[in-house]
């Protein structure tokens, strides 16, 4: 039983490393890189890493990662959230440096590329959550209020990032990209269902005062 548990733990971590590592490795092998400057390359990989972090976030909150249950998982979620915001800043700044007019079009929602508004909307959702998370204690937001704010924005981030990424023709290899996007969606749907179930269970068992 214990052996199975530790084997399962190893499998889950290996799967996570592969889910994020394979798309990054495949993009690193892309022939497109030969014709890009270092800043553009950095911006692109910051975007891919950001998508990988979007996969980690629901896994941490759901407590699905062995060794990181509830409390520790939530602390890690905070730090990964900060890293996600930093990755997005690098992504946008690098693209701005590469081609300012294209980035301005994207940020002002006037871009001809259909994926831009999805990415920009997800970016704002990430920034809003990051700022609110920093101010949460000062604002005195309770867990319930926090979730009412965070969950819809989390859905915006996941949906926006996945559509953004899938519509882009760039360095990412198609199959590993689609697989990563599918995992992000699956992890998000699972954690939403679990959170909702836990809430209803608690609502039934704990009497209200």
């Amino acid at each position: 039983m214990r052996e199975w548990k530790s084997a399962r733990a190893v499998l889950i971590w290996v799967a996570l490393v592969l889910a994020i590592g394979v798309p990054i490795a495949a993009a690193a092998a892309s022939e497109q890189l030969a014709w890009r400057g270092p800043v553009y390359i950095l911006a692109g990989f910051a975007g891919i890493i950001a998508l990988g972090l979007v996969l980690v976030q629901p896994l941490l909150i759901g407590g699905y990662l062995p060794g990181l249950p509830a409390y520790r998982g939530r602390r890690a979620h905070h730090w990964i959230g900060g890293a996600l915001a930093v990755a997005v800043v690098i992504h946008v700044a690098g693209l701005w440096f590469t081609s300012p007019p294209d980035m301005i079009d994207a940020l002002t929602y006037t871009s001809p590329t259909p994926f831009s508004p999805f990415g920009v909307t997800a970016m704002w959702a990430i920034f809003i959550i990051a700022v609110l998370a920093l101010l949460r204690r000062r604002l005195g937001l309770r867990l319930r209020t926090w979730r009412i704010v965070h969950i819809p924005l989390a859905i915006v981030i996941v949906a926006g990032s996945v559509v953004h990424c899938l519509l882009i023709e760039g360095t990412m290899e198609t199959i590993s990209k689609a697989a990563l996007c599918a995992l992000v969606l699956a992890a998000t749907v699972k954690v939403m269902i679990d959170l909702w179930r836990r809430r209803t269970l608690r609502g039934e068992s704990v009497p209200r005062h």
Binding site: S99, P101, D102, D105, T110, S111, P112, T113
Partner: peptide, 8 residues
């Protein structure tokens, strides 16, 4: 003119 056409 197309949007983004004049970029760069």
């Amino acid at each position: 003119s197309m949007s983004g056409g004049a970029n760069n």
